[in-house]
Design a protein around this nucleic acid. Structure first.
Lengths: 237, 237
DNA sequence: AACCCGCATTGACATATGTCAATTCCGGCT
DNA sequence: AGCCGGAATTGACATATGTCAATGCGGGTT
């Protein structure tokens, strides 16, 4: 945890899903201090670091402040199934609300920092205000539905196109141009997320590049023909 | 809507996720009447009937009292992607909490009846009681996580095995023996749910039958070797 | 009871994808 | 700046799955 006071951190929070919870409009300085006392702010942690593991007791919701966290499970024969990636401003941990234990593992796929918000505090806050209550339910809903986006569409090509567009839309840190961004995870993670082999992913990315829809070099991606890519993503090609 | 009074309906509700909401322990008769006045109880509706469609405004959560409802979307080239099946006692409609409009279609795959609970009433009830509040969040969470169960496991065989075991566990109306049950939907719906072709589904079911793991005839299924089937479902075979 | 229509099954074939293996490439490290 | 090791790519091949088409079966209707 850093020693930076809440006020200095505020601008880092502007993109965050929890912004209205942490920075309620019209709150007094004392109220802000009180809220921030309950939120842990981690420094940047290295890639590969675990946030939580399956069966860990459920204590908190996490907000990604920078970097990327993957949630995943491992099946009987050791294959990793990536449920989703969580980029900056996004939440994770809701998976554990029902059974009170986490149902998956969470690990950073790149150098990342997160905020840790105790769940009991979220419930209490939301219980005290109808507006916050509705807000929490909506956050909840949004984070869950995010995970259902990619599964659609049978073809591997379609899923890759959809993934690239999704990542582009969610990547808040454009590199050079508006159509350029940086993937925050390895090819293997992406493949495990899309449910295809890493080799197939490589080949299909190469094919997209040959067809001049994208330029991809290592983790740097540039969408050279986004309209066309949308067609692919929708199975129209 | 039927004319059956709430008290007579109570035994039908015992399996339902909303039981504690509709039948709070220790409530007065007046309170029970009040609660039931806000819940619509449909008669049995025929297969093929729409419950809601994409972009419909969000008004209510539905509880399946009998039968089966599928939620699905249709992609650009007309393929149906089935998100999930909802059997008796289960809820649907939470998909619309965030954008305030439904994000998928819902249609009965068999003769079914449902309860209709206005969402604003759920929020109000849950806002008034901390216990109910926690309960709603947990329901919410459970209904979402149900949808993530099948996606796991790459092979089609694995997904089918998982599907059969899941349906068996959730089918509250055993036909003859404890290992026998009735599928509530067509092969096409199942195939669209599992992300494979209907023909492939047929072939793989036939294979499972040849290997004496199941007996399947039309919509009637009998798990003759559940332990073995579990191994298949976990990719151990 | 017999007929039909729709669902389900089966067959043949093309293709996409997984698997194993070799090779290249890049980024971080000293 | 140069080296090293892991990540990514590419190739060859086996296999699972999709697609199109024909056939079979059963439940609901008259």
């Amino acid at each position: 945890m850093t020693s930076v006071g809440p006020v200095n951190r505020r601008q880092e929070c502007e993109f965050c899903s929890l912004y209205e919870l942490c920075w309620p409009a019209g709150a007094t300085a004392a109220e802000l201090e009180r809220r921030h006392a309950i939120v842990g702010h981690s420094d940047a942690l290295p890639a590969g670091k675990d946030l939580f593991r399956t069966d860990d007791p459920f204590t908190a919701i996490y907000a990604v402040r920078a970097g990327c966290v993957k949630t995943y499970s491992v099946d009987a024969d050791g294959r990793e199934l990536v449920h989703g990636f969580h980029l900056r401003g996004e939440l994770l941990g809701f998976d554990a609300v029902f059974p009170d234990r986490h149902r998956c593992n969470a690990k950073m796929t790149a150098k990342s920092s997160v905020c840790v918000v105790p769940y009991r505090d979220i419930v209490q806050l939301s219980y005290k205000s109808a507006r916050v209550h509705g807000h929490v339910l909506r956050l909840f809903s949004r984070e869950f539905s995010r995970q259902l986006m990619i599964a659609e569409g049978s073809g591997g090509m379609q899923r890759i196109a959809r993934f690239l567009l999704d990542m582009h839309a969610r990547s808040s840190a454009p590199v050079a141009s508006v159509h350029e961004f940086r993937l925050q995870m390895s090819r293997e993670d992406i493949a495990n997320y899309l449910g295809i082999a890493a080799e197939t992913l490589s080949r299909l990315l190469a094919k997209l590049q040959q067809e001049d829809l994208i330029e991809v070099k290592r983790r740097r991606v540039r969408l050279t023909d986004p309209e066309h890519l949308h067609l692919v993503a929708n199975g129209l090609i």
